[in-house]
C-alpha cells in the first residue's frame, strides 16, 4: 500500500463488496482539496487530511483504505492495519481535534477470507465521528485490545472473541461471554456448523 501514490490511497477502495458507496463519492472536491487544503471543507477533504495526519504521526502504511460512507451521514470510514491499530486508537483519543472519548459500537464481521472488527468512535465534545475497520487473517486472528483505552470495549471484545474467535491481546479477562465456557466453535463465523440442523 505504501508504494501507491498518495491520492490513490484515499480513493483506492477496490474492495467493492464492502463499500459500494464509492461510486457515489463526489469526485470534484478532490482536486480542489489538493490545491487549497483548508479553504474547501468537504467530508472528502477532511478525510484526506486525516489520512495525511495518520501517515505522518503513526506510520506510512497505517491506512489501507479510506472512504466516506455516504448513506451513513457522510461518516468517514478508514481501514487500519492491525499492527498500527493500538497507536492509531490512542492517536484518536489524544489528538485534540478528534479526542474520541466515546466508543459507541464495536462489531465483529466475518468477511469470508478475512475477519474484521469495526469500531464506531465519537467525541462527545467535538462531535467528530469515525468508523474504523481493522482486518485480521482467518487463521489465528488477532487484533490488539483497546480495553485499556476505552473500558467499554471490555465486554464487546469478549463478545467478538466468543462469537467470532478473534483474539485480543492486551485484554484483561478474555473469556466467552454469551456461549457456555465449553462451547466448541464460534457461531457468528460464516463457516460455523450448527450441531443441531433444525435450529
Amino acid at each position: 500500500m505504501s508504494d501507491k501514490p498518495e491520492e490513490l490511497s484515499v480513493q483506492s477502495s477496490q474492495n467493492e463488496q464492502e463499500l459500494s458507496s464509492d461510486a457515489k463519492q463526489p469526485m470534484a472536491p478532490k482536486n480542489i482539496a489538493e490545491q487549497t487544503e483548508h479553504v474547501v471543507d468537504t467530508p472528502q477533504s477532511r478525510l484526506e487530511q486525516l489520512v495525511e495526519q495518520l501517515k505522518h504521526d503513526i506510520a506510512e502504511d497505517v491506512v489501507d483504505e479510506a472512504v466516506i460512507n455516504e448513506v451513513n451521514g457522510q461518516l468517514p470510514t478508514i481501514t487500519i492495519k492491525k499492527e498500527h491499530w493500538l497507536a492509531t486508537a490512542r492517536w484518536f483519543q489524544l489528538e485534540e481535534e478528534w479526542s474520541c472519548d466515546y466508543l459507541r459500537n464495536l462489531a465483529g464481521v466475518d468477511q469470508g477470507d478475512e475477519l474484521e472488527v469495526v469500531y464506531h468512535l465519537i467525541s462527545l465534545q467535538t462531535r467528530r465521528e469515525i468508523a474504523v475497520h481493522v482486518k485480521t487473517e482467518r487463521e489465528q486472528p488477532w487484533i490488539p485490545s483497546v480495553t485499556p483505552l476505552w473500558p467499554t470495549a471490555n465486554w464487546n471484545e469478549r463478545e467478538v472473541y466468543d462469537l467470532l474467535g478473534i483474539d485480543f491481546p492486551g485484554h484483561p479477562d478474555l473469556r466467552r461471554i454469551m456461549m457456555p465456557d465449553d462451547w466448541v466453535g464460534h457461531p457468528l463465523r460464516k463457516d460455523y456448523d450448527p450441531s443441531d440442523s433444525e435450529v
Binding site: 464492502e18 463499500l19 459500494s20 458507496s21 460512507n69 451513513n72 459500537n105 462489531a107 464506531h120
Partner: peptide, 30 residues
C-alpha cells in the same frame, strides 16, 4: 445496496444502535 450503516437512536435505556453490513442481498450479511 452493498455497504454498511450504523444507525442509533435513544431508547429508554440509552443508545441503541444497529450496524448492518449488506452485500446487496435480501438478508443482511451481518
Amino acid at each position: 445496496p452493498a455497504g454498511e450503516v450504523y444507525a442509533r437512536i435513544e431508547s429508554p435505556r440509552g443508545e441503541i444502535g444497529c450496524y448492518i453490513v449488506s452485500k446487496g442481498k435480501a438478508e443482511p450479511y451481518r
